[in-house]
């Protein structure tokens, strides 16, 4: 019992234990839900549902929304669960810290809230747009596609990190 409590309240687990856990989770997703783990489609559904709420039902006619269907389904609930699980893990580990500007950002670019949020927003737009263009994100390609050995997923994942590494060095290089 003590051991379980200690594990659950640890701030951090070994990356290998976490990796094995996510691998097993992907087995369960295939077996129980006939789905690969993937996160970014749910964001496109949300965008479509918001646009439908604002502009009316004709939004559903957009070819992309026809393709992914605007509904609350497995993929959407996965994100709700992800948020809850991440919160519970941080709460148990005592690592919840409300923070607008990450410390690493602050020490390089200062504590200005506007700059961090503007860059985060621009980054988010690129992430959302690029994920849908590339048909998946770090989960859908980097884990689910890669574990099925799909060549296109390996290529996409390589480009995620290539783009990320170039951007990170542009921001923090030489520090």
């Amino acid at each position: 019992m003590d051991v379980i409590v200690r594990i659950l309240t640890a701030a951090e687990w070994s990356p290998y234990a976490v990796g094995v856990g996510i691998g097993v989770l992907s087995w369960l997703a295939f077996l129980l839900s006939d789905h690969p783990l993937g996160v970014s489609t749910a964001f496109a559904k949300t965008a479509g549902m918001i646009e439908r709420g604002v502009r009316g039902p004709q939004v559903t006619q957009r070819p992309y929304y026809q393709k992914i269907s605007l509904d609350i389904d497995w993929k959407w609930m996965l994100i709700v669960g992800l948020l809850l699980g991440a919160f519970v893990a941080a709460w148990l580990g005592g690592t919840i810290r409300w923070e607008w500007v990450p410390a690493m950002w602050e020490s390089r670019f200062g504590s200005g809230l506007g700059a961090r949020l503007a860059v985060a927003l621009a980054g988010g737009v690129c992430v959302g747009f690029g994920a849908r263009w590339g048909r998946g994100c770090t989960s859908g390609h980097g884990i689910s596609g890669a574990l099925q050995l799909v060549l296109g997923s390996w290529l996409a994942a390589l480009c995620f990190f290539l783009g990320g590494i170039i951007t990170a060095f542009a921001l923090y290089g030489g520090v």
């Binding site: 860059v119 985060a120 621009a122 980054g123 988010g124 737009v125 690129c126 992430v127 959302g128 747009f129 690029g130 994920a131 263009w133 590339g134 994100c137 770090t138 480009c159 995620f160 990190f161 290539l162 783009g163 990320g164 590494i165 170039i166 951007t167 990170a168 542009a170 921001l171």
Partner: peptide
């Protein structure tokens, strides 16, 4: 996506 990954 990678560009956004680094910015965000």
């Amino acid at each position: 996506f990678g560009l956004g990954f680094g910015l965000l």
